[in-house]
């Protein structure tokens, strides 16, 4: 059976085509203002990459904040459920999932088989998501990759007091004026966001191994800070972690088509 999962975020749209339980193709693009059109084009390209036609796709499931904008999808599923299904696919038995995307973060507790037991979400405050890191890297005049790497070199812990992205930008500027090293500021930023994310996770209870999804999983500085905060020695991160929700949606689609 062939199905498609589409994750419609505010920032990016991701499409995954699954064939007999395996990922056949995946594709991402910037959401822009015309979510539906962008998603439709991405789907067409992903189908071409997988060598399948629209008629062969048994079911399309949309997820993400803009999931209801896709009138061509056969069904919708929440981000939390999609993430839980993806976790069961990649890491069966893992019950604690953290997801940190560009504009939202979540802590999810599952039964390890794809069923959601509990979740805590931050989706309306920029300070709790990936965009916080982007703003801070910009304030430091660094590329995101460099910012993430530099953080690992820091051996000093300095606190960031500001809890809001706008105020944190000013705080970073004053840290620069005080000649604080960039690597230490980078670490302070990652520590701050990791502490916010870890408190979400603690609300749903941290148990056993932890899976990390979302674009922030690419950031080694953040991962290090998060492991420190959670007191775990590793995180289970799938290949291309930003596609997790789209993969989860495609899995939901195959259940619904059957």
């Amino acid at each position: 059976m062939i199905t498609a999962g589409i994750d419609v975020g505010n920032r990016n749209i991701k499409v995954v085509i699954m064939k007999e339980g395996k990922i056949a193709s995946r594709l991402a693009g910037t959401a822009g203002f015309e979510q539906r059109e962008v998603a439709f084009k991405l789907l067409a390209s992903a189908m071409a990459d997988a060598g399948v036609t629209r008629d062969e796709v048994a079911h399309i499931t949309a997820t993400g904040m803009g999931r209801n904008a896709l009138d061509f999808a056969d069904s919708q599923v929440t981000d939390v459920t999609a993430a839980a299904r993806a976790a069961a696919y990649f890491f069966p038995g893992v019950t604690t999932i953290i997801e940190v995307g560009a504009e939202e973060s979540r802590g999810i507790k599952t039964d390890g088989k794809g069923r959601v037991l509990d979740s805590a979400i931050n989706e309306k405050c920029a300070a709790g998501s990936g965009s916080f890191t982007e703003s801070m890297a910009r304030a430091l005049g660094m590329e995101l990759d460099e910012f993430a790497q530099k953080s690992l070199e820091s051996t000093v812990q300095i606190p960031m007091n500001a809890q809001c992205t706008v105020f944190a930008e000013s705080e970073v500027v004053s840290l620069i004026h005080q000649s604080t090293e960039k690597k230490d500021i980078a670490r302070a930023v990652h520590d701050a966001i990791a502490s916010r994310v870890s408190s979400l996770v603690r609300r749903v209870k941290l148990e056993g191994e932890v899976a990390l999804f979302g674009g922030m999983a690419y950031n080694p500085g953040f991962c290090k800070s998060l492991m420190d905060k959670l007191k775990v020695d590793h995180l289970k991160i799938p290949e291309q972690p930003e596609f997790a929700d789209a993969i989860g949606a495609a899995i939901v689609a195959s259940k619904r088509a059957a």
Partner: peptide, 18 residues
């Protein structure tokens, strides 16, 4: 003062979702 601006996080350990 140092706790006020992050009170939701400071109090989180006493407030599990269930």
């Amino acid at each position: 003062d140092l706790k006020r601006k992050k009170i939701m996080y400071e109090c989180a350990p006493c407030k599990p979702t269930r």
